[in-house]
Design a protein around this nucleic acid. Structure first.
Length: 475
DNA sequence: TGAAATGTTGGGGCG
DNA sequence: ACGCCCCAACATTTC
């Protein structure tokens, strides 16, 4: 029997539209699928997964293993470091090649070279993006720094190829090597088990991801352009964690949209997939996106050190209802509506004047879709220091944002139940309600619900003053 | 993928 | 009938 090949799964936890897997199967050799648990995954930038992402990973790996078993294969689980895990496994089974899907971000060449030094050939395949970063350049040959021209340019390129089907069978080796037990990795919380809200909200895995895409396109895509900003509307696709873990490929989404009649809602949805693409291309250019502001002047921004303010924000007790609703949705479900992400981000960075990196780290730990490209790029956008960023002086007013995007109050009432009985008129500004109104709603400010942590107008002025500090230093 | 401050316009109330 | 003021509605500028 010919030497087997290793198929190293990373953030591509699927069988359909998986070029590396398809190539491994078509090589005619036995295939050993392996996942390596490793904080040093070059893909993760030496950054251990956050708690919510670990929970998701458990479900996704379990689903992938089951899908492989249906095809006569298995998923081998090993602990890192990656180089040692892969070279050990290759030695055990006599493999001389490892196939994987490349990912924008860290340089994978050192790993490929180190494997080659052990006599193992690395073959890398596309699969995480619609377009590879080196194929998307301005006329000057530089990467795009502004989204709209980037997105327009993508439309002029050769469209992504049709997705590949999942292989019917994945050829197994004669003998299977040892594997860790998924349970032993303890990816899911036990004491305390905080994952109840996640279980109630999500089903990880490729099949569920495809089902969510179909449901979205059939039921909600047409209303997406109008509904996507409404906080309580459930108008979005909720595909972000599936894209994060590669349970679904962006090519599948691209063609699923393209195969339908032209539809304004679906087009604007595809644009969001374009933002993902943009963020990954940015991280390809700037691997330390989570640490270094793309606009260098912001390295000197006078952020405040405010542990109490940060804790109030994290726990959803800022006294601004729409901010607290978003933060509690995040804590409870591992996900937050995109509009709410902008609102809470603006509040942390501009109202509290806390470094965007503190927010990025909190999201990294609590979001099931926490992605090393999207998360820091989004925070740099919010912080005004990124590419194509919201200018720092664009300060969201949390009251107006609440009244505009949660006008009926359903979002706040769902996540901040202690305010549920307030009339719409006061729901987003309870501190302006009269004492009788508050009493009738069972609200005691400062007791059942916090007083606002800051006065928004004063906080806004403070943020603009801080911005002038770095602008003055720039000049 | 803002908001606030400031400027402009035009209708209506009123002396 | 006229000028004046108020202010809502909208536009522009600024942060």
């Amino acid at each position: 029997m010919s030497a087997p090949v290793l198929l190293w799964f990373r953030r591509d936890l699927r069988l359909s539209d998986h070029p590396a897997l398809t190539a491994a199967v078509e090589s005619g050799r036995p295939v050993l699928p392996v996942y390596v648990l490793d904080g040093e995954d070059p893909d993760g930038g030496a950054r251990p997964l956050g708690g919510a992402a670990r929970w998701w990973l458990h479900g996704s790996l379990a689903a992938l293993a089951a899908d492989l078993e249906v095809r006569g294969s298995r998923l081998i689980l090993r602990r890192g470091p990656v180089l040692r895990a892969l070279s050990d496994l290759a030695t055990e089974v006599g493999a001389d090649a490892v196939f994987w899907t490349r990912h924008a971000g860290a340089d994978e060449k050192p790993l490929a070279d180190a494997l080659a030094a052990c006599g193992i050939r690395a073959r890398r395949f596309r699969g995480t993006l619609l377009f590879e970063p080196e194929d998307v350049r301005t006329r000057q040959g530089t990467p795009f720094r502004v989204f709209t021209p980037f997105w327009k340019h993508l439309q002029t390129l050769e469209p992504p190829a049709r997705p590949l089907p999942a292989p019917d069978r994945v050829p197994a080796p004669e003998r299977w090597p040892a594997s860790d037990a998924l349970e032993d990795w303890a990816l899911r919380p036990t004491r305390p088990d905080w994952a109840g809200g996640l279980r109630a909200t999500w089903t990880p895995g490729e099949a569920a991801a495809h089902a969510r895409l179909v449901a979205f396109l059939d039921e909600r895509a047409a209303g997406y352009a109008e509904g996507r900003d409404r906080l309580a509307a459930e108008a979005t696709s909720r595909l972000s964690p599936a894209l994060r873990f590669g349970e679904i490929s962006p090519r599948v989404i691209w063609h699923a949209v393209g195969d339908r009649p032209r539809d304004h809602g679906a087009e604007s949805f595809l644009r969001e997939v374009g933002w993902r693409e943009f963020c990954h291309h940015l991280r390809h250019q700037a691997p330390d996106l989570a640490e270094s502001p793309l606009q260098a002047a912001f390295a000197r921004f006078p952020w405040r050190d405010d542990p109490d303010g940060l804790a109030a924000w994290q726990s959803g007790r800022t006294g601004y209802p729409v901010v607290d609703a978003g933060m509690r949705q995040l804590w409870h479900t591992g996900w937050m509506h995109n509009r709410a992400r902008m609102i809470v981000g603006s509040f942390l960075v501009k109202d509290l004047l806390i470094d965007w990196r503190a927010g990025e780290r909190w999201f990294w730990d609590t979001l099931v879709d926490a992605c090393p490209a999207n998360n820091p790029a989004g925070w740099q956008w919010v912080g005004g220091c990124g590419a194509d960023a919201a200018p720092f002086f664009r300060v969201f007013n949390p009251v107006l944002q609440g009244e505009k995007f949660d006008s009926a109050g359903d979002y706040v009432r769902a996540w901040v139940p202690e305010l549920a009985r307030l009339p719409d008129r006061w729901l987003h500004r309870p501190w302006e309600a009269g004492s009788l109104t508050l009493r009738e709603a069972g609200v005691r400010l400062g007791e059942t619900y916090p007083q606002p942590l800051v006065d928004h107008k004063a906080a806004r002025d403070r943020a603009l003053a801080a911005l002038r500090v770095i602008k003055a230093a720039e000049a």
